[in-house]
Amino acid sequence: MTEQPIIYTEHLTKRFGDFTAVDAISFEVQKGEIFGFLGANGAGKTTAMRMLCGLSLPTSGKATIAGFDVYKQTEKIKQNIGYMSQKFSLYEDLTIKENIRFYAGIYGKSDAFIKDKTAQLLQQLNLEAEGDKLVGSLPLGLKQKLAFSVAVFHEPQIVFLDEPTGGVDPVTRREFWNMIYEAATAGITIFVTTHYMDEAEYCNRISIMVDGKIEALDTPAGLKETYNAATMDDVFLQLARKATRSDA
């Protein structure tokens, strides 16, 4: 018996006036998968992601996230996902512990849960002595790792990561991906966008969006074979150059 996909979309579409930002995309993501969501600027990634997170109503098509409907159960979706991006990080003028308590509180976690898990998290990040430090005083790499930990703190079924490693140094970037692997091993599904093509290789499967459509979807090895390309960079360039919708 196969499990129900954790993300399911069928002809999912979003139009703004006569502009079709997302054009009938259909795909499935399985539980525990690391799914890379790639595309050029303006291809429709952000609009698609907003629909999947329950933040924007589709114009037509179907989608369920963790079994919840993107039209009718958006609050349920929000409770069952985590989200982090390079831009929306943590509150700089709150301490590490305050940020954790704030986010976990929003997700309705109990004080006992928060207390236990905070101790565990600070230990994992080697931050036991720094729980009362302001987040603003931390180096960027550590902030991003902390932001990821906070995004999965409430034990969501899926976490959406929007360019999580932008501007991060190469060593921290790899430490960050280690955390992603650990979360995926623990059964959290990862949905990630990135502009680093080497990171595309770390995903189990990748989709590439061009002009609002999913033009390709496969494992990194499968894509390279199909497009007869040596690297993911080549695959991406071949597909993205076909774009007619210009972000000039």
Partner: peptide
């Protein structure tokens, strides 16, 4: 080129 996709970067 920060935050810019691979094609536009090129």
């Amino acid at each position: 080129t920060t935050g810019v996709d691979a094609v536009s970067r090129k």
